[in-house]
Write a protein that binds this DNA or RNA. Structure first.
Lengths: 209, 209
DNA sequence: AGCTCCATGTAAGTCGTTACATGATTCA
DNA sequence: TGAATCATGTAACGACTTACATGGAGCT
């Protein structure tokens, strides 16, 4: 359950209302673990019931909002989760399932799939890269709060781990783009020389940027 | 819904019982879309209710088994699905979520995470490569049935698309391994020179194998 | 007065996981 | 006769999606 622990981590930067938390979530965790606001509110209530966060009702004009803060139990759970080695979930990739059965479609349909795949991951890659820029400039509200709450000696590591994660996502996106492009080449070869194609292997990620 | 369509594709190779289908599934689709047998039986019943497959009760000693075959509607649905361009599902990666928060753990804990990540994807990579070998040798029972049911001119494409998909998975696994290794280097730099680290970018997948 | 943002949820449904359940056949 | 394999499910639960629902606050 990454949602639960990501919320604990966000709350470690200081007390926050559900709404603020959801907005911060959208700008950070959402890149690697998307969730709707409704799910966040639900999870916060569950965390509260589990004693990992505590909520305080804060007046807001005539209405009220709820400010959540991390409890000692929540903090312990966060650290337990970070230390715990978890198996990655199994691969579950619709695009690869479908690619396995492209023979049921026309070459043109296969091309469209690969082009859409490439376009999607190009957009993702750009999104990740913009986020890396923000992180490196320490230019997000959440990161500033987080750094302010942490000892200066830890600042580099806090930023570095996040940047490393997003660099990894960029590399993944590039692998997808490369796969789609080789897919397009394969479709061309199959369509033009249906009896004499060769499938070149995908090279290892080696060399400089 | 990839499960549904993968089952339709498996059935295109000819009538099969649920059990056989589940076994074939384990040796093929399961690489990219895992499912329990119980889920496959449930989905087959649902496909039957939707008119996409038809079942025939076959005697087996005193008991019976059900042999499923693709209907015209099922075939049409399979082709519709292949032609349909679908957005890839959003990234949802526990390992990357956690890596974003490695500052909550010790360097040693971070190392263990990265090592487990590397080991996992090395095993996956080897699994995929073994499957590619099988495909290239046309050495799986299912592939042989599938090829036997298809015109000879289509054989190359049938194999080539599958090989391409698994090559892509190998490339993904390699990207994960590379990410984990750079993660290990990062932990070392942070632990040894906490104030003077540099995060090298991950190079593009360029160059020869 | 109306729009945007703030703020918090409920409800229904889908998909998938985990555990449980049962019994026949085949082969050593 | 006992184990492995064949064969087919049900039940409960959890996570997430989609849609719906409501109302205050702040600004123009």
């Amino acid at each position: 359950m990454s949602l639960r622990h990501a919320l604990l981590a966000l709350l470690d930067a200081g007390p926050t209302t559900g709404y603020e938390l959801a907005k911060q979530f959208d700008q950070t965790v959402d890149y690697v673990w998307p969730a709707q606001h409704s799910q966040i509110y639900t999870e916060l209530r569950r965390l509260e019931a589990a004693g990992m966060v505590a909520a305080e009702t804060v007046p807001r004009g005539l209405a009220t909002k709820r400010a959540y803060r991390l409890t000692a139990e929540g903090d312990a759970e966060l650290r337990r989760w970070v230390a715990e080695v978890a198996e990655p979930p199994p691969v579950r990739e619709p695009a690869y399932v479908k690619a396995t059965y492209f023979e049921y479609g026309t070459p043109q349909q296969a091309r469209e799939q690969f082009r859409a795949h490439r376009a999607h991951y190009e957009a993702q890659r750009d999104r990740y890269e913009r986020h890396i820029d923000q992180l490196e400039r320490r230019d997000t509200a959440l990161l500033r709060r987080r750094l302010a709450a942490a000892p200066a000696a830890a600042h580099d590591a806090i930023v570095a781990y996040k940047v490393h994660a997003y660099r990894g996502l960029v590399a993944r996106a590039r692998a997808e783009i490369s796969w789609a492009e080789r897919g397009l080449e394969l479709v061309d070869r199959l369509a033009e020389h249906p009896a004499a194609y060769v499938i070149p292997d995908i090279p290892e990620p080696e060399g400089e940027r």
